[in-house]
Design a protein around this nucleic acid. Structure first.
Lengths: 413, 413
DNA sequence: CTGCCTTTTGTGAATTTTCACAAATCGCTG
DNA sequence: CAGCGATTTGTGAAAATTCACAAAAGGCAG
């Protein structure tokens, strides 16, 4: 089936449902048109469909969550968002989704919505793609009009969120009033999370997650900043809630790493607060986590929350104090000099040993050396820098100073 | 032998040597008069003496070091400094010191010098004490006159030292010039040491140490502040020099503890510097050590030097920073609450375990519990506060926060 | 090259730590 | 008081650590 250029021009000012019917007639198949949020906008009146997903979508006026999740997971949306052309989707029977073709309705780089065509009555071939392309083009102004208001509101919400992130508001009651007027639901407890990846279209990969929970979020360069609500006031169960946040982040990051070329993606989140004027705190804490993770990539691999930072919570501060004081750990200096002179690796040995919490077997494995070699080196270290590694104070001090030495100098700043 | 009151008045304006002769005549024994620094001022011309100490004193114009040290060690000077009456000293043949009697020449509480009477020709009885008392009284103006200038100089030296301690001078060349004009020998390398004891006459017990090495020192309340020179520029041997300083302090403290009722005496010293404008640093460091030792008495028992402080170097600053941030370690809070609710001692257990550098046998011994009990408690702690004690970061963090929690709140300040 | 020193690796025994399991104690609740 | 859960202590075996000693390898100076 083919169509002459400009065929759809007649529907320019018609009802969008008529457009759906027109496409359906041409393709001889059921059609649905959705906005970017997968809300149903129009659907063709093509008789009874056997497709479960279609029925659910029409009944619920939105594509079911289960279907969306699956399509994101399978990368269908990633294709839709990046390609101009229609995407042919094989059937996914386990979620009641028959074979179909979809195309994004786009204006510039923005995706305004989607046209879905089921292959129920007859197959849709590559030649039919042109029909969908033209239909997508003619649908644009309707969606623009439709989304215009929604987008402006969204914009005002994001601005409000930025104000909160930057700590512009200190009055709780003011924040509550403004949130209400913007129809933003502020949770009783929350935390701020920042996800960072080199991928520029970061938010696209996370759309389903962002939309599903109606979260407050903004982009800032390569960072996605979002407010995660924790619907529970019992402080006791916070541990459980945090585990859910961790799970969410792990999922998101896994998704990002799969789709980014270099696979670099990190996330950090701040502490849980309930006063909204503390949003700025949670945000800064999240940023602090990211900063630490850049500096101590290996050491902080499994850290995402500010409350897990441990010594890294104050290491930056400690570094600037030490620099200002002109402090240098003479022991580490001595050890570094010894390494230099004798081509040994005592400094690395010491750090690995301390990182391994004093477990010699673990440390030896990390260093790829015999356990006796490690013990010999440790005794050597104790001799050279006159330290007693069984003294927790001395040990802690060395551990911290080793980490401090890895940080960039702050005096130049 | 006795003497009428006012007998010595005739020597009021005579040469002090004549006074010595007069006493000698009355007691029929050799006499020496010394100033507070044990420099010889006068001696009776009573024939040849068999006493080795006397001969050495006269020949060297000062009491030999060996004799002084021994007399301090045996507590003779302590008696002389505290008692108004003459002190009868048994012979100490190993240092060539025959039997003798001595009395302090004092004006108010200040001791200006000493009169020594050997028992060579005939015994000196209790009845002769009055002679010595009167002689001591009449010797005062001569010694006052003699010491006036020296004392003024000493005063000016102390003032100079205070200026250095407070960092009033920043120009090295100025400091050097002023030191020279005051005849103060500044060592190439030095450190500042502060000794503190409840005993108010602290410096008296340490006189021999102070005088022997001609150190710069001042008293500040219960604190004795002194500058210790380290005559070596090779940075390599600093460890050895420091060990000597430690030895010196151990000796001094032992001496103090022996003589003070409650036995409280501590010392702290700063880092080694060579620029004299850094005296203020070394002094502040020494004070910092003392402050830390007050707060963490048990933990810092064997710490005296600033360089040994380890984590305590920055704990005070970290505390005030954490307080300002409103930081509280939720884990420790949880554990404390658990202890409260269940009458357990998990917090103490955790601290002891961490203090013991993770050695379970050591920690169990400290806590007087079975080793399995300790292991059980540790597993329990890991469960309750969701911590992995094999993770050095988490461990260190808990260790530091435990110490921080022991410090007084800084927000009230 | 030899001799000397430092470092690495190997071996084996003594000691310590870890772990699983069981018994006893204790406080609390129905 | 019986029963329950938390805690303490005991026992024994497996695993890890510590220690002493020895052999081998490597660099370096004479």
């Amino acid at each position: 089936m083919s169509v002459q250029p400009g065929y759809f021009d007649q529907f320019q000012h018609a009802d969008i449902d008529e457009l759906a019917d027109a496409i359906g007639d041409l393709l001889q198949n059921p059609i649905t048109i959705e906005d970017a949020d997968h809300k149903l906008i129009a659907y063709s009146s093509h008789g009874e469909s056997t497709d479960l997903a279609r029925r659910s979508t029409i009944m619920g006026r939105r594509v079911p969550e289960k279907v969306l999740t699956r399509l994101w997971k399978d990368g269908v949306f990633q294709q839709l968002l990046t390609k101009e052309d229609p995407v042919h989707i094989p059937p996914k029977e386990d979620i009641g989704l028959g074979r179909r073709v979809a195309i994004a309705i786009r204006k510039g780089t923005d995706v305004l919505g989607y046209i879905w065509a089921q292959e129920e009555n007859q197959p849709i071939t590559e030649k039919d793609d042109e029909i969908l392309r033209q239909a997508a083009r003619v649908a644009v102004p309707r969606l623009v009009q439709r989304q215009g208001k929604r987008k402006a509101e969204e914009q005002r919400r994001k601005e409000f969120f930025w104000e909160l992130l930057l700590g512009n508001h200190t009055s709780e009651s003011f924040i509550k009033r403004k949130a209400e007027s913007l129809q933003v639901e502020l949770p009783a407890q929350y935390l701020i999370c920042v996800i960072e990846a080199e991928e520029t279209r970061l938010e696209q990969y996370l759309y389903p997650l962002l939309l599903r929970d109606k979260l407050l979020w903004v982009m800032d360069g390569a960072q996605l900043i979002l407010l995660i609500g924790l619907n529970s006031q019992g402080g006791r169960e916070n541990a459980l809630l945090l585990r859910k946040v961790e799970q969410f982040l792990d999922d998101s990051l896994e998704k990002l790493v799969d789709h980014t070329p270099h696979g670099k993606a990190t996330a950090g989140y701040g502490k849980i607060y309930s006063e909204y004027s503390d949003i700025v705190r949670s945000y800064r804490e999240a940023l602090h986590v990211l900063e630490v993770k850049r500096l101590f990539f290996e050491e902080t691999r499994q850290i995402k929350g500010y409350h897990q930072l441990g010594i890294y919570r104050f290491l930056r501060q400690l570094k600037s104090w030490s620099d200002a004081e002109g402090y240098v750990n003479e022991q580490l200096k001595t050890l570094a000099a010894y390494d230099q002179d004798n081509q040994t690796h005592l400094l690395e040995t010491l750090e690995t040993y301390l990182d391994s919490a004093g477990k010699v077997n673990v440390a030896a494995q990390h260093l790829h050396i015999h356990i006796n070699t490690l013990n010999y080196r440790l005794r050597r270290i104790e001799e050279i820098i006159q330290v007693d590694l069984d003294d927790q104070n001395q040990r802690t001090s060395l551990y911290l100073d080793l980490k401090l030495n890895k940080m960039p100098d702050t005096t130049g700043k």
